Deep mutational scan, measured.
Amino acid sequence: KKKYVIKVYFEDTGKEVEIEAESKEEALEAAKRLAEELGLKIKKVEIYP
């Protein structure tokens, strides 16, 4: 089964997080949740198959 690796870059902090997920949708949801939890804004998202 294919996994996606999503790199999320946050504004202000210069922080980046990698998330593995089964689908792009799932990964983007996780990225949004994470940003909310951390109180950060997402600057850029890169998706690698």
Rank of each mutant, 00 (worst) to 15 (best):
E36I: 14
E36V: 14
K15C: 01
K15D: 05
E20C: 08
K15L: 07
A30T: 10
L38G: 02
K2Q: 09
A27E: 00
L38T: 05
L40M: 08
V5Q: 07
A27I: 04
K7W: 11
A35D: 00
E26W: 15
A30H: 13
V5G: 03
K32I: 09
G39R: 11
I6N: 00
E26K: 06
A27Y: 02
K2G: 07
E11Y: 15
E37L: 13
L38E: 03
E46V: 14
I6M: 11
D12C: 10
A31L: 06
K7R: 14
L28C: 04
K32D: 06
E26A: 14
D12P: 09
E25R: 06
A31V: 11
A35R: 02
G14S: 14
L34A: 05
E16W: 11
L40P: 01
E16K: 06
K15Q: 07
V45G: 01
E25G: 05
D12R: 15
I19D: 01
K43Q: 08
F10E: 00
E26H: 12
A35F: 04
E29I: 12
Y48T: 13
K7H: 05
V5T: 12
A31Y: 09
G14L: 07
L40W: 15
L34Q: 03
V45P: 00
A35H: 02
A35C: 04
G39P: 01
G14M: 08
E46P: 00
K44W: 07
K15V: 09
E29S: 13
K24N: 11
I47Q: 07
V45I: 03
K1G: 14
E11W: 15
F10T: 01
I47W: 12
K2D: 02
E36R: 15
L40R: 06
V17K: 04
V8F: 13
K3V: 06
K44C: 04
K24S: 08
K7S: 02
K43V: 06
A35K: 02
S23L: 03
K15G: 05
R33D: 04
E26M: 10
T13P: 11
G14N: 11
Y48K: 05
V45C: 05
V45R: 01
I19F: 08
V17N: 02
A31S: 05
Y9A: 03
K44N: 11
I42S: 01
I42V: 05
L34R: 08
E25C: 07
R33S: 05
P49T: 14
K44H: 12
V17Q: 03
I47Y: 11
V5C: 02
A21K: 08
I6F: 13
K2A: 11
A27N: 00
L38Q: 06
E20I: 10
V8T: 01
E22I: 04
K43A: 10
S23Q: 03
Y9E: 07
G14Q: 10
I6H: 01
T13L: 08
E11V: 15
L38F: 11
T13R: 15
Y4M: 03
E46Y: 14
L34C: 02
L38H: 04
A30W: 15
E22T: 06
A21W: 02
A27Q: 00
K41I: 05
T13C: 02
A21L: 07
V45F: 12
S23D: 08
V8G: 00
I6C: 02
E25D: 13
E29G: 08
A21T: 09
P49W: 13
V8I: 12
Y9F: 07
E46F: 14
E22D: 07
E22V: 08
